[in-house]
Amino acid sequence: MSELTELYQEIILDHNKYPRNYGSLVDFTAKGEGNNPLCGDEVTVYWKLGSGAIEAISFQARGCAISQASASMMTRILKGKSVAEAQELFQLLRRHLTQADGDKEFPEKLGDLAALAGVRKYPARIKCATLAWHALFDKMGGSAQGRELLIRGD
């Protein structure tokens, strides 16, 4: 069970069961949709931008525990962040999920997202862990850096 319990850590199961910031926002300024054609999972992320920062953010999804927990944790960590900070976090997360920094410890900055580390042993599930993030940055990714990230894809 060891790899499995590493994948399904308490915190993942908890966010899966009790997703935070779930539902749409009444006054969102934009929303982004993502789906995984492989499995049919769907996510919609809603956010409200004000003076360059994410004032509010929420999501709705039909997906596995990994995608659900990642989306839920994402809304928590990105709330209040500037667009540039948010993009930096996404880049950091991706690097730690994929080959670039795949063997390193998750940095402090990523907070609870460190619970996603177990996904690295399940390459097929990395897409699940980044689905909501892509939904967000696909739409928001106005900056050259953001777009470049998306083009490379996961």
Binding site: M1, L4, C39
Partner: peptide
């Protein structure tokens, strides 16, 4: 109920059981 098919497939795989999850 309460468990997404993908998670079912991943956990079953840890027990050596191969099934398909998805559409």
């Amino acid at each position: 109920e309460g468990v997404h098919p993908h998670d079912i497939a991943t956990v079953l795989d840890a027990d050596g059981i191969a099934i398909r999850a998805g559409h």
